[in-house]
């Protein structure tokens, strides 16, 4: 039971990472009508820069900031050089161009950092455990990730729904010309927004780095999962993104732990572990298929 609770929290932690990714991706999609496959690359850039900075003794917070800043700057450069030429193109062009970006970034990091994965340790002050559930000490860093994720997403929600900037953003999404006429510099707004979405990806990247190997191609694994989150939740729905992220985070984490156990009941352990792990990977896609079979536009489908 305590193990289960711990896994539940791990699932929540993974879900929060996905939520940060999904927020950035849908923000960019919703407002600029742009599908950015390279969003995963920004996650990777954040992880690499953060891990490297910390390994060189920057300390955790500076490293975190470096990762976020690197992702944001990379994102803004991306927007200035390429993306703004693609806003009015169809999604196919966007997919192809950002696919090119993925190839570029994945190869670039192996030129800079080599093919071997880079490790990142959890910071000392968060390396302990917290026993907020009696009898179940939980790693402080994981808890910090959960809290950060929730706070950041909450702030984002507040920013978009309740502030003047958020109003511009939402107005810009529905009517470019109108907001331009109000004297808001749309180009600049878009660049900044893109950087903001990238910063969220960078944050997710640094926070996920201690749990996964920081390596070339890491961004796409999380990107595809983020797509599943968005598809399950329903495009353009904040509640949907939250529900989808939690659902996927929990399913994936619990599946990875319990499916191999289940498989051991009728397979030899060596086979069960491998097969179980891949079955667990399939599980979320099966979940997606089932959800879509009944709700083609996702759990929280928006009108139209």
């Amino acid at each position: 039971m305590l193990l289960f609770l711990e896994q539940l929290l791990n699932g929540l932690q993974f879900g929060v990472t996905l939520l940060l990714m999904a927020s950035g991706l849908t923000l960019i999609f919703g407002i600029m009508n742009l599908i950015n496959l390279a969003h995963g690359s920004l996650f990777m850039v954040g992880a690499y820069v953060g891990a490297t900075a910390i390994a060189h003794g920057s300390g955790f917070f500076l490293g975190l900031l470096a990762g976020i800043a690197a992702a944001a700057l990379t994102g803004m450069a991306m927007e200035l050089l390429i993306m703004r030429r693609l806003y009015r193109r169809d999604h196919l062009d966007q997919v192809l161009a950002t696919f090119g970006l993925i190839l570029f970034f994945n190869e670039m990091v192996s030129i800079i950092w080599g093919r071997q994965p880079v490790a990142m340790n959890t910071p000392d002050f968060l390396s302990g455990t917290v026993e907020f559930i009696p009898g179940a000490p939980y790693p402080a860093f994981r808890l910090a990730v959960i809290v950060t994720g929730i706070v950041v997403t909450g702030l984002l929600y507040f920013l978009v729904m309740k502030t003047r900037i958020g109003m511009w953003i939402r107005a810009g999404a529905s009517n470019r010309e109108m907001i331009g006429a109000l004297g808001v510099n749309i180009s600049l707004l878009y660049t900044v927004l893109f950087g903001f979405g990238a910063a969220l990806a960078g944050l997710a990247g640094v926070m996920a780095a201690p749990f996964s190997a920081v390596q070339s191609g890491m961004g796409e694994n999380i990107l595809i999962l983020t797509f599943v989150v968005i598809v399950i939740g329903g495009i353009g729905s904040i509640r949907g993104a939250v529900a989808g992220a939690l659902l996927i985070g929990l399913t994936d984490t619990l599946g990875r732990v319990y499916i191999p156990d289940l498989m051991r009941l009728w397979l030899p352990p060596s086979v069960a572990d491998g097969t179980g792990a891949s079955l667990a990977s399939m599980l979320i896609y099966i979940l997606m298929a089932v959800v879509l079979a009944f709700r083609p536009r996702g759990l929280f489908q928006t009108h139209g």
Partner: peptide, 9 residues
Amino acid sequence: QVILGPILI
């Protein structure tokens, strides 16, 4: 691939 990517773009 670091060259192919930009070519695609």
